[in-house]
């Protein structure tokens, strides 16, 4: 093992003959926090699924924690896109979070004491312990997002994958969400994927641009040229400078 969390070398993915990912090279060290931005349909979710082993690349090499993807899945935490589940589903917060342990618990078995403890710790970590018995659909978007993060944390992952995590969170809740990510990045590597440049630039250490091809310089810097190449049109860098005068200190004027 090289000590790298992930290593991708010249990875290509095709759907119906159309390339979705083209020659992706990417590596991530322990406790790196990488933000990936790019337009919708640019392959961001596909890239996460390659790392999770849910999508097989048509070419290239992928190593996740030194193993082929899929084998190391239990050491990954995954927070899927918010919109992809039935919000009316009859399930409580507690059941959702425990679900993160269902692989560890094993087929045919009930959740063990350890599973329940880990689920409690995860809920505590995202400050949602008081909502344990609530039905998931009764929570706000931001609260649901925290529950899904808790579910991903129950396996104590070495890498956390977040797919468009800010899409469901209204602006006043976002500051709290970034604080949570700040705490989490002490413990694990994180990849956060978003089409929202502002969301990504707030707390990441490194940033990349993805639109079929990946523009990445292993740093926090991203040039206007990269963004233009990824979006294929000039983009106004309104996010520039924003990261350090973040929302939480912003006085909320309610001039209704």
């Amino acid at each position: 093992m090289t000590g790298k969390i992930i290593e991708l070398e010249d990875v290509w993915v095709h759907y119906d003959g159309m390339p979705i990912l083209e020659g992706i090279n990417l590596s991530l060290n322990q406790n790196d926090f990488l933000g990936i931005i790019g337009p919708n349909g640019g392959g961001k979710t596909t890239l996460l699924k390659v790392i999770l082993g849910l999508v097989k690349p048509s070419r290239g090499k992928v190593l996740v924690l030194g193993h082929i993807p899929g084998e190391s899945r239990k050491l990954l935490g995954y927070v899927p896109q918010y919109s992809l589940f039935d919000h009316d589903f009859p399930i409580s917060v507690w059941e959702v979070v425990l679900m993160g342990r269902s692989g560890q618990a094993g087929l045919f078995r009930r959740y063990s004491k350890e599973d329940k403890e880990k689920a409690l710790q995860a809920l505590e970590m995202v400050e949602m312990l008081d909502y344990k018995e609530r039905q998931i659909g009764k929570l706000s978007g931001g609260e649901q997002q925290r529950v899904f993060i808790a579910r991903a944390l129950t396996t104590e992952p070495m890498l956390l994958l977040l797919d468009e995590p800010t899409a469901s969170i209204d602006t006043p809740m976002q500051a709290g969400f970034y604080e949570l990510l700040e705490r989490l990045k002490q413990r694990m590597a994180i990849i956060l994927v978003s089409h929202d440049i502002g969301a990504v630039s707030v707390c990441v250490d490194k940033i990349a641009c993805l639109n079929h091809r990946l523009f990445y310089h292993n740093s926090r810097e991203i040039s206007a040229e990269d963004i233009e190449a990824a979006y294929q049109c000039p983009v106004e860098l309104i996010a520039h400078g924003v990261p350090h005068r973040v929302l939480k200190e912003h006085p909320r004027d309610r001039s209704l």
Partner: peptide
Amino acid sequence: SLLYKEFLALSFDEEFGTVVGIP
């Protein structure tokens, strides 16, 4: 009753179920 937690995971979020190792 043997597969209650698996069927729950599958019904709620099949992809996540796969990720955590449910067939």
